[in-house]
Amino acid sequence: MSYSDAIAQRVETLSQSVLINGVTPLAGRFLLAAIFLLSGVSKISDPAGTIGYINMAGLPFPTLSYGAAVVVEIVGSIALILGFKTRIVSLVLAMFSVATALTFHHNLSDLNQFIHFFKNIAMAGGLLQVVAFGAGRYSVDGRR
């Protein structure tokens, strides 16, 4: 057996493993969801501050925007962790991440905003991987 055949066989074995198809997607979903869950809880703990920040950014209907953000972050993160409607939820969270980057972190000359902007873009990229490949074995979607 050639070296390339051995590598191809190993890759095939890995792609069928429980770790790759089960545990890794679950861990990835949990890690992606953690930032949304923490952000949503943070918003709930300081509604006035969050509404003020939304208002300062110039978004219309800051109270409504606040409520929508809390719902997207809390419900979306829980659904992502559970693997429920994962592709749709991941797409919504990816769009939310990009919208947040463009709305709140567009001053790229400020290092803090620069970091937050590209963090949100990177999160959207990870979420689009979930859109493309699904929730994995250990998920509500995987049980259907």
Rank of each mutant, 00 (worst) to 15 (best):
K119N: 13
L108T: 09
T103S: 04
N120K: 04
S90V: 13
Q113A: 15
F117Q: 01
V130W: 00
D110T: 04
V130Y: 00
G126R: 15
H106P: 06
A124G: 06
L127P: 02
F118K: 14
N120S: 06
S97Q: 11
S109K: 09
T103M: 03
A99P: 01
F96T: 04
F117E: 00
N112K: 12
L108Y: 06
A99L: 12
K119M: 11
K119V: 06
A94L: 04
M95V: 15
M95R: 13
G126S: 10
F104W: 04
F118M: 14
A94M: 01
Q113L: 12
A99K: 01
A132F: 08
N107V: 12
F118R: 15
L91S: 07
V92P: 02
N107Y: 09
A124V: 12
I115P: 08
F118W: 10
A101N: 07
L127H: 00
H106K: 14
V92H: 02
L102Q: 11
L128R: 09
N107M: 11
A122W: 05
G125M: 07
A124F: 04
I115K: 13
F118I: 14
K119P: 12
N120E: 12
F114L: 07
S97H: 11
L91V: 03
H106D: 11
M123T: 13
N107T: 11
V98N: 06
A94T: 01
F117D: 00
N112G: 08
T100C: 05
L108G: 08
V131R: 04
A124W: 02
G125T: 06
F96G: 01
I115W: 10
Q113H: 15
N120Y: 12
V131Y: 13
D110F: 03
F104R: 12
F104Y: 15
L102A: 14
F104P: 11
V130Q: 00
S97L: 07
F117S: 03
G126V: 08
N120F: 06
L128A: 05
N107G: 09
F117V: 07
S90H: 06
L128C: 12
Q129D: 05
A101Y: 08
A132W: 08
L91T: 04
A99M: 10
I121R: 02
V131S: 08
N120G: 13
N120T: 12
S109N: 15
V98I: 14
I121N: 10
L93P: 00
M123Y: 15
M95Q: 09
G125I: 10
Q113N: 14
L108I: 08
F96P: 02
L108D: 04
L127W: 02
Q129N: 08
H105T: 11
A101S: 15
H105F: 05
S97W: 07
A124M: 12
A101V: 14
I121M: 06
M123E: 11
Q113V: 07
F96H: 04
L91C: 13
A124S: 14
A132N: 09
V98C: 05
F118S: 06
F114Q: 14
I115R: 10
Q113D: 15
S90T: 10
F104V: 14
M95C: 14
V131C: 05
L91Q: 05
T103Q: 09
F96D: 02
Q113M: 13
M123S: 12
S97P: 01
T103F: 01
A124N: 07
A132D: 09
I121S: 02
A101L: 10
G126K: 13
L127N: 06
Q129S: 12
M123W: 15
T103P: 01
A132Y: 04
I115H: 08
A99E: 03
